[in-house]
């Protein structure tokens, strides 16, 4: 079910602001790709172009091509709603639906897609919660509000919600930045487990995290304020962290960054 993403010549804009400039890369299936780089370098923006969430911001637009195996996400006639169903997303801050129970949160995407049969829903909800390493903690209180869980549990609930609709790709936008170290570890374990089935892309500020969880790492940078973000290089994580091609990458990962 995991698919390859091939991006070519991608530009993104917020109104008149050029946010990312001419990015091309290939993201391999069943692997974890990490995006690193200084704040404002466009890595989150780029992530959001991969499931067409970028364009929900008023005035935002995208140019270029994003191929999911052999389908262009930005081809005319492609419905962004269908794209987002295939490319799931987990956000920086856990955002379970506050009025819904734990069960309903996981089932939300399924219900949208017309799964109504109780038995099938139960099965997928349980499977997704197990998949998110959350089942044992919540199985006795599925009817309680999702907002009552701890931050780390909420984030895993959001991951369960995202994988319940069986996407091809899972995007994670700094999923651990609002969490404590123990919860962060739980999410990292989960990422390692999920990559058997999904193409995972994760944006992170934490370089140790990138080194721990990812197979490949992409480094983004900006030339200065107001300039668009660029992809500096993408390579195997071990290569990026030991022997990067670019001087800027080396400066950044060794902390010699201006």
């Amino acid at each position: 079910m995991a698919k390859r993403i091939e991006v070519s010549g991608l530009h993104a804009y917020y109104g008149g602001v050029h946010a990312i400039d001419d990015i091309s890369m290939t993201i391999e299936p069943r692997s974890v790709t990490a995006f690193i780089g200084p704040s404002g370098c466009g890595k989150s923006t780029f992530l959001r172009t991969l499931n067409r969430m970028h364009e929900v911001i008023p005035g935002a637009r995208v140019e270029g091509k994003v191929m999911l195996d052999d389908e262009d996400l930005y081809a005319t006639g492609v419905d962004p709603v269908a794209v987002r169903r295939s490319v799931g997303m987990v956000f920086q801050r856990p955002n379970p639906f506050p009025t819904m129970s734990i069960y309903d949160n996981v089932a939300a995407g399924l219900k949208l897609n017309g799964v109504r049969r109780k038995g099938q829903l139960d099965e997928i909800v349980e499977g997704s919660l197990r998949g998110a390493n959350l089942w044992n903690e919540v199985k006795d209180r599925l009817g309680k509000p999702g907002a009552g869980l701890s931050g780390g549990q909420q984030q895993r609930l959001c991951i369960a919600r995202a994988i319940a609709v069986q996407p091809q790709v899972l995007l994670m936008d700094e999923p651990c930045s609002a969490l404590d170290p123990i919860s962060t570890l739980a999410i990292e374990d989960l990422i390692a487990k999920l990559k058997d089935q999904y193409t995972i892309v994760i944006v992170t500020h934490n370089m140790q995290q990138a080194a721990r969880v990812s197979d490949r790492t992409a480094f983004f940078n900006i030339a200065g304020t107001g300039k668009p973000g660029k992809l500096i290089e993408i390579d195997d994580t071990s290569k990026i962290f030991t022997n990067p091609e670019q001087k800027a990458t080396e400066d950044y990962i060794t902390g010699r960054f201006g």
């Binding site: 999911l68 195996d69 099938q120 997928i124 349980e126 499977g127 609709v165 091809q168």
Partner: peptide, 20 residues
């Protein structure tokens, strides 16, 4: 996770291979 993969014809998956 096995449950996820066994959960038969996934929601919103069309009969054809297209994911979109």
């Amino acid at each position: 996770m096995t449950a996820v993969s066994k959960s038969a014809p996934g929601p919103g998956r069309s009969a054809k291979g297209s994911s979109l």
